[in-house]
Amino acid sequence: MTAILLTKNVHLSYGKKEALHGIDLDFDEHGITALIGPSGCGKSTFLRCLNRMNDLIPRTTVTGTFNFKGQDIYAPTTNLVELRKQIGMVFQQPNPFPFSVYENVTYGLRLTGHKDRQFLDEQVERSLKQAAVWDEVKDDLNKSALSFSGGQQQRICIARLLAVQPDIILLDEPTSALDPISSAQIETTLLALKNEYTIIIVTHNLQQASRIADKTAFMLNGNLVEFDLTSKMFTQPEQQDTSDYLNGKFG
C-alpha cells in the first residue's frame, strides 16, 4: 500500500495553548483509518488540519509538514478550493443545506460550473447509490433534504461529498448524533466506499473503530500514542496507555 497523505511533526496552537504536540501519521491510499482517544485529545483538531478547516478559527497556528500526493497542503500557493475538493469532510451533525436533495448533491458540481442536466442526473444517482441512500430518496429528490431522518441526512451529506469525487474523505464523528441502526448503515456505507476512497474517521466509539478501520491511531492529550493495524492494536497493544484506554480504565 502506498501512502497518499503524510504528516510529520504537526504542532497546532489555539492562541498560546498548544493542542497538538507533534503528530506523525501516514495514511494509506484506499482504506479506513480511525482516530480514537478520549474527548479533548486533539483527534478532531488534527482531522481539521488535513483540509485546513482550522484556518476558519482565528489565532490558530499550525506547523509541520503535510504532504498530499507530493504537494504541501500548507504551502502559500495551495489552492484551498481545489484542496477541499480533493479532501472532503463530513461533520458530526448532519448538515445538509435547506434545499432539495438534488440541489444538495449537485452543489459541489455546480460550484465548478457543471450545468449539463444529464451529467448532473447521472452524478446524483451515482453518488446517492454509493452513499447507500438512493433507494430511500430516489422518489423524493425534489423534497427538502431536511425532511429526512438524521441517518438519511448524514448519508445525503456523504453523497454530496462523493459527487465531487474527492480522494480523501474526512469524517468527524459522523455517527455520534445518530441512533444505532442509522450508525450501522453509515458503517456499511463506509466499508463499501473504502475500495475507492481513502477514509479517515474520528470516532468515540471503539467498537466502531474495531469493526470498520484497517488501521487505528490512538491519541492522548495532543500526542500520538500508538498507530497500528486495527487487528493488532485491539488484541496486542504495545503501549500501556492504549491497553488501559481500550479496556475502559479511563476515557
Binding site: N51, M53, L56, V81, E82, L83, R84, K85, G88, M89, F91, Q93, N95, P96, F97, P98, Y107, G108, R110, L111, T112, C157, R160, L161, V164
Partner: peptide
Amino acid sequence: IPSYFRSASLALGATRFQTIYKV
C-alpha cells in the same frame, strides 16, 4: 443561519463568495 451551513459549503470547495451567494 447556522454556521454549519458555512462549514459544509467551504468544505465542499466553495469560495466565501460562493458560500454567501449560493447558501
